[in-house]
């Protein structure tokens, strides 16, 4: 029983670590304030949940990743020219639109009822081991990627977009690449979520989840991959004591959201670089 609880925490941590790492690529390294990240997670979860009854997971999960990455590309195409708060608002609009579609395209998504009975990926132990291994792999790949010439162009785009363009770098293409990679990883996290929880509904697109991701990212610090892992770990563990204090269950949800929102506010107000951050949020 206790080990089952820790396995669950491990899976939650792994999922959020994947999401925060990939969000850091867009927000921290490329400087794109992307509030559509949770939508890619939702798209990944929905794609594999809808497809998996008709095909093996070995096909439906990669398809989930590809479609999430395609959605990222699609979002980057019109939004590539926007900056700062306008980009944030347009991508936030994208999250809302995805949530609306999930709620209303009932023949495909079963609307607010959600999709139940999704195929399990395997035993929980197998899920936690593969997920944590995946976090390590993604961490190492991203660590390598940001030091490659392409990765350095992304950081140049963040620091000075005009200068990067002056040096002949195709800023727009790099932004698309960054969003596609980041969205693909988020889609993979979504696929794990769907095949672990075995139920999804439109609340995966909720703005509360988005705030949770932003808190993890900013607590850990921008442009620090270690920070993202640390941020995910801290915020997954932080609300756990609420479970044991014995609040009525109707209060636990809102209290969790309040803790995350308050933490985000405090960090933005008093420690804008987070724990391990290398750049400021702009």
């Amino acid at each position: 029983m206790i080990s089952a609880y820790f396995i669950h925490l491990g899976i939650m941590f792994g999922m959020y670590a994947l999401l925060t790492l990939s969000l850091n690529l867009t927000v921290g390294y490329t400087g794109l304030l992307n509030l559509g990240h949770i939508a890619f997670f939702g798209i990944g979860a929905y794609v594999t949940a809808i497809l998996s009854p008709h095909m093996p997971l070995a096909i439906s999960i990669p398809l989930a990743v590809i479609l999430a990455a395609a959605a990222g590309t699609l979002l980057a195409l019109p939004c590539g020219k926007l900056r700062g708060d306008y980009l944030a608002l347009a991508t936030l609009g994208f999250t809302f639109i995805c949530g609306s579609i999930a709620r209303n395209w009932i023949s495909l998504t079963r609307g607010a009822l959600g999709i139940a009975g999704i195929q399990r990926m395997g035993s929980n132990t197998m899920i936690v081991v593969s997920l944590l291994a995946l976090v390590l792999v993604v961490y190492l790949i991203l660590k390598w990627f940001v030091s490659t010439p392409t990765g350095r162009v992304l950081q140049a785009v963040r620091d000075d977009e005009v200068a990067a363009a002056t040096l002949g770098k195709d800023v727009f293409k790099h932004k698309i690449l960054c969003l596609a990679i980041s969205a693909g990883i988020a889609g993979l996290a979504g696929a794990f979520y769907a095949h672990y929880i075995t139920f999804i509904d439109p609340s995966v697109f909720s703005i509360n989840e988005l705030i949770l991701l932003l808190s993890m990212l900013i607590v850990g610090g921008l442009a620090s991959l270690e920070g993202s892992i640390l941020g995910a770990l801290i915020l997954v563990l932080l609300p756990e004591p609420l479970r044991f204090i014995g609040f009525p269950s109707s209060l636990v949800g809102p209290m969790r959201a309040m803790i995350f929102a308050l933490l985000l506010l405090l960090i933005v107000l008093y420690k804008p670089r987070g724990l391990l951050g290398k750049v400021d949020l702009e």
Binding site: L33, P254, A257, A261, L265, L269
Partner: peptide
């Protein structure tokens, strides 16, 4: 302005959850 926007979204979630609680 982007930081203020993030703060305001955090504030929105805080207020919504407080009302819910």
């Amino acid at each position: 302005a982007a930081v203020l926007l993030i703060a305001s979204i955090g504030l929105m979630i805080l207020l919504n959850s407080a009302i819910l609680a």
